[in-house]
Structures are given as C-alpha cells and as structure tokens.
Amino acid sequence: MTGTILQLVLLVLSGLASASKSSPGDVQSENPTTVQLDVSAELTRLRDMVTELRVELSATQAGLQCSNTQLNKMEAENEALKADLRDVKDRLVISEKEIESLKDAEQPKVAFSVALLDSGFMGPVSIDTNLVYTKVITNVGQAFSNITGFFTAPVRGVYYFRFTTRDSLDSRHMGIVLCKNGEKVMFVEEADNDGLRHYLSSGASLQLEVGDVVNMRLPAGYRIYDDADNHTTFTGFLLFTL
C-alpha cells in the first residue's frame, strides 16, 4: 500500500517536471499564479489520497488482526473439542468395561459333572430308583447334590443336561430316564444279548424356574454299570438366564 502511494507522488512530480521543461513561448503564455495554484491543488489531492489510503490500510490491518484473533480462538476451541472427544472415548471404554463386569456379575456360573459309583453293576432294580451320583468331577455353583442326586436350579434360565451310561448286555435291557420335577422328560434304552459293552448317551435343553429339580432315574428291571473309569456320568450347565 505504501509503495502505491509513492508511485502516485512520483507520477505527479514527473508531470510537474515535464511542465517546467515546456517551450519558452508556452511558459510565457501561462500565468505563474495559475501554475502555482494547479500544483497546490494537485498536492492537496495527493494528500487526500494518501490520507484515504492510510485509512483503508488501517482498516485492512484491523480486519486482519481481527481475523487472526478469530483464527486463534477457533484453534483453541478445536483443541478443546479434541480434548473433550478424547475424554468421551475414555469414558466410553470405561463404561463398556463396567457393562461387561455387570453382565458377568448378573450371569451366575453354574456347571456340574458327576459320575455314579466305583462298585460295578447297579441293578436290575425292582422299582424305579433315583440315581445318586456320588463322584463329583465339577460342581461350580454347588447346585448339584451328591447326597440326593438332584440338581436344583439357582436361577430362572435354560440349562443343558447330558448323560451317559454303560452295561454289558446278555439278554438284558439297559435304560435310563431324565426327569424334571419328578416327571419323565426322556427315556433311552438298549437291548442285546451279545454280552459286549454297550453305551447309551443323550441330552436335552430344559427351561427351569428357580427351585426346579432335575435328576436321573433307573427304571425297574434295568441295570447299568460304572467303576473308577466313570462310564456312567451326568452333566449339566446354565446356557443363559431368562
């Protein structure tokens, strides 16, 4: 902007110099008072132009300063937003961990696996007999009793139960019953006379209310076998709560 002002001043001075070098006839024909007035008027106009340009320059500088201030403010706000975003992300991670912890706390851990006995054959029995699995392999949650042979549901949910048994069949029937609250849910059996070892295995998912009981039963006239190798087992665990 200052360079522009200087160029205007030089342009005027150049014009005045050109006027002073004009022919003697021309000079004599001009009134000295008129020339002086023209120069004074031009200088006044230049001063006004310079003043106006200075005002515009000041306004431009003020506007630039304001823009810089606003830019600095926006950058500060942007940094604050970034910090807030990092804080929100950290809080989100903490919340997710707390939710997972609550889920784990709300979902009880229930699982058991037991075996029948070490003494060999059981049966044939004369009446339906509830089986008492005396050998506890796993009993997380302590929902199975090796005194009664019953599993008692600690929470409302869906549970999975599986059982396996063995016998040596020689014109005998091998069978076993899965019961819920004393009622038969599933009965599986096998008959053969080859005298070889045979296994039965099955399972079911059951929806249970708190306090419902599940157990295995040996029907009248049937026989099963177990020993230290745990051929006859009963297993169950909670799939999910309801």
Rank of each mutant, 00 (worst) to 15 (best):
V110N: 07
V210F: 04
L53K: 11
M74P: 04
N181Y: 06
M74K: 11
C179E: 00
F237L: 11
E79S: 10
T33Y: 15
S201F: 05
F112C: 08
A62W: 00
T232A: 02
L46G: 06
P154W: 05
A204W: 12
A76I: 06
R166V: 08
I176C: 02
V140N: 07
L92K: 12
T165S: 14
E189V: 04
L8P: 01
F112I: 07
V50E: 14
T60H: 08
M174Y: 03
V9W: 14
S67Q: 12
G211F: 01
Q142D: 07
E98V: 15
A204G: 01
I137V: 09
E77F: 02
M74C: 12
T2K: 10
A153K: 02
N230Q: 12
P219M: 03
T34H: 09
Q61G: 04
A19E: 14
A143W: 02
P32F: 00
N193C: 02
R162Y: 04
G221E: 06
I147E: 08
Q207C: 12
D48N: 15
E106R: 14
D128C: 06
A59Y: 05
T69C: 09
D170Q: 13
N181W: 04
A17G: 02
V132A: 03
D212R: 04
K97S: 15
V214K: 00
V132G: 01
L196R: 14
A220R: 12
V9H: 09
Q70K: 05
F163R: 05
S201P: 04
T138S: 13
K82M: 09
F161V: 15
T165V: 11
P108R: 13
A62M: 03
L81M: 10
P219A: 01
T241R: 11
L16N: 08
I224S: 04
K180I: 06
I224E: 00
F112N: 06
T33Q: 12
F163E: 05
A62S: 14
P24M: 08
P154N: 03
N230M: 08
V27I: 13
E77G: 00
T134L: 01
N31E: 13
D90L: 12
L116E: 01
L43K: 07
Y159M: 01
A17K: 05
I127R: 13
G63P: 05
E75A: 08
L92W: 03
V125A: 04
D84A: 15
S67L: 14
